[in-house]
């Protein structure tokens, strides 16, 4: 078969190529090439600026990781943090979305209040919370001591379990709004008549929610869950600013540990092995994401 390419199609094709080239160059330079280089670095030994000779060492760094308790701890911290904060964020997000879907006065202000925690930099949000958690001068201890709830200040960020919980609270405060917004968009797309039909059948509010709302929200909830899980798996500035991973390493996430190995201990190749492992964990999640989206269409 002879394909007929008209001059117009040809021009369209060339324009398309020209239009997409700048984006592809930037994406390859900033996202694709660095990942590939991290993989190469993780299998060898080299100097910081890459000027010295690269020496292939095989799986040496990965073998060292397998026996490194601090690495396993950071993986465990990351997974625990994700597993605790995501369900809480989801519950809060659904609650907020249902609330924002009601009609009430001053809705604009309420929506803004929900949007603010998401819109502000995580690093600075975290500083605000660290200040409220402050043992000697923080708002929480001031209120708790004055009201007589406790008679000694609580060391919110100095106790291993408490520090993790404090970190989860900041994450939930910050990102429930994102969940809420996505779920709210889903809520608003549910046809009104479904509820009217339900009311005719004498459904209670709770039954309405369970039997009409939730099943129709499955799609948006899944998307919100996966996007947020990937964010939680790479959490960095939250422990960096709240606890610096402490006490000891109780809140040291994978990203934070990798950063310390690379830029504090200046071990680029070993750090590269850690980020490759982290990349694989998140890559598995993103595959799940894309497969889910494929099935949705």
């Amino acid at each position: 078969m002879i394909s007929m390419i008209s001059p117009l199609d040809r021009r369209r094709h060339l324009t398309g190529l020209a239009f997409i080239t700048p984006t592809m160059l930037v994406i390859i330079a900033i996202l694709v090439y660095p990942i590939l280089q991290s993989i190469v670095l993780s299998f060898g030994q080299s100097s910081i600026d890459g000027s010295g000779p690269y020496q292939f060492v095989g799986l040496k760094h990965y073998a060292a990781l397998a026996g490194n308790d601090r690495f396993w701890n950071s993986l465990w911290v990351t997974l625990t943090f994700t597993a605790i904060s995501i369900p809480l964020e989801l519950a809060m997000g659904i609650g907020l979305a249902v609330l924002m879907n009601e009609h009430f006065r001053f809705k604009g202000i309420a929506r803004l209040a929900v949007l603010f925690p998401w819109a502000l930099p995580t690093a600075l949000n975290t500083l605000m919370w660290r200040w409220m958690y402050n043992t000697d001068y923080g708002l929480f201890n001031a209120a708790a001591l004055q009201s007589g709830l406790v008679d000694r200040p609580i060391n919110w960020l100095g106790d291993e379990t408490l520090a993790m919980m404090s970190m989860v609270v900041v994450a939930v405060w910050k990102t429930s709004s994102f969940m809420a917004l996505i779920i709210l968009a889903g809520l608003q797309s549910i046809p009104r008549d479904l509820y009217e039909a339900g009311r005719m059948d004498g459904m209670t509010r709770w039954q309405e929610f369970r039997e009409i709302t939730l099943p129709l929200l499955k799609g948006p909830i899944l998307v919100a869950l996966i996007v947020r899980s990937m964010d939680a798996l790479r959490t960095f500035e939250l422990p960096f600013n709240l606890t610096d991973g402490g006490p000891v390493t109780a809140t040291e996430s994978l990203s934070l540990y990798a950063y310390k190995v690379i830029f504090d201990f200046i071990e680029f190749n070993y750090g590269a092995a850690i980020v490759v492992v982290q990349f694989l964990v998140i890559f598995a999640m993103s595959l799940l994401y894309i497969l889910t989206l494929r099935n949705k269409d």
Binding site: P34, S38, I48, R234, A258, F279, I282, M285
Partner: peptide
């Protein structure tokens, strides 16, 4: 291409750091 662009957007930023730092330094 759209799926490729979506997939690369999920790379953890910290995993770009060793390489980006070296490249930007040079």
């Amino acid at each position: 291409l759209m799926v490729f662009i979506l997939a690369v957007s999920m790379f953890p930023p910290v995993s770009l750091l060793p390489s980006l730092f070296q490249t930007f330094l040079n």
